[in-house]
């Protein structure tokens, strides 16, 4: 806690090292979270950059209350995404596949198949309810702990665990249905 409070102070003092550390720790996690929501790679990159610039603009008004700083950062990310989705609701989304990690397959056909499977998985997450999806996005893409996820969502850790449970049950059903059908 002391460390995090000191980190926040250094961020507020615009310390290069603190910001570099924050960037290195969170950039990919925030990107994955946003990418899962918006689909398009370029837009996800742009929004991720905006999250950090927004954090830089807003950090001076951040008040340390013992809550995880990551929750604050992901709240910015969440609001960026909400704002973006609202503005671009009518636009088609680009399938999330081309920047999914290259697997061990050297064969382009196999690689394409694997990427397609990963794209389907991402679509399956998209079929969850809003609250379930939010938990999955924050826990798995954002790699937040249950406590941090609870802070971002304004829920109790118990409620997050329950949502996580129901989300995984639903995801399993969706995946089985897709596999069978």
């Amino acid at each position: 806690m002391q460390d995090e409070e000191s980190l926040v102070r250094r961020l507020q003092e615009r310390d290069d090292e603190a910001w570099t550390g924050l960037y290195d720790e969170f950039f990919n996690r925030v990107y994955r979270y946003i990418r899962l929501r918006v689909g398009d790679r370029a837009e996800a990159e742009d929004l991720t950059e905006q999250v950090f610039l927004k954090a830089l603009q807003s950090v001076s008004s951040y008040r340390w209350r013992g809550r995880p700083f990551s929750a604050w950062l992901f709240r910015i990310a969440h609001n960026q995404v909400v704002d973006h989705v609202r503005k671009t609701r009518h636009r088609r989304t680009v399938p999330l596949d081309e920047s999914l990690p290259a697997t061990s397959a050297a064969d382009p056909v196999l690689l394409a198949e694997q990427r397609s499977i990963l794209g389907q998985l991402a679509q399956s997450v998209g079929q969850l309810t809003g609250a379930q999806r939010a938990v999955i996005e924050l826990r798995f893409a954002g790699e937040l702990s249950t406590a941090e996820t609870a802070q971002v969502l304004g829920k109790s850790p118990g409620a997050v665990k329950a949502l996580q449970h129901s989300a995984l049950v639903a995801l399993r059903k969706i995946l089985s249905r897709d596999r069978d059908g």
Partner: peptide, 19 residues
């Protein structure tokens, strides 16, 4: 300055904050 209470859709489970 970012609004602490940006509008959030139903699905977002009441999240608010700068952004």
């Amino acid at each position: 300055p970012p609004s602490p209470a940006s509008p959030v859709p139903q699905s977002s489970a009441g999240i608010s904050g700068p952004g």
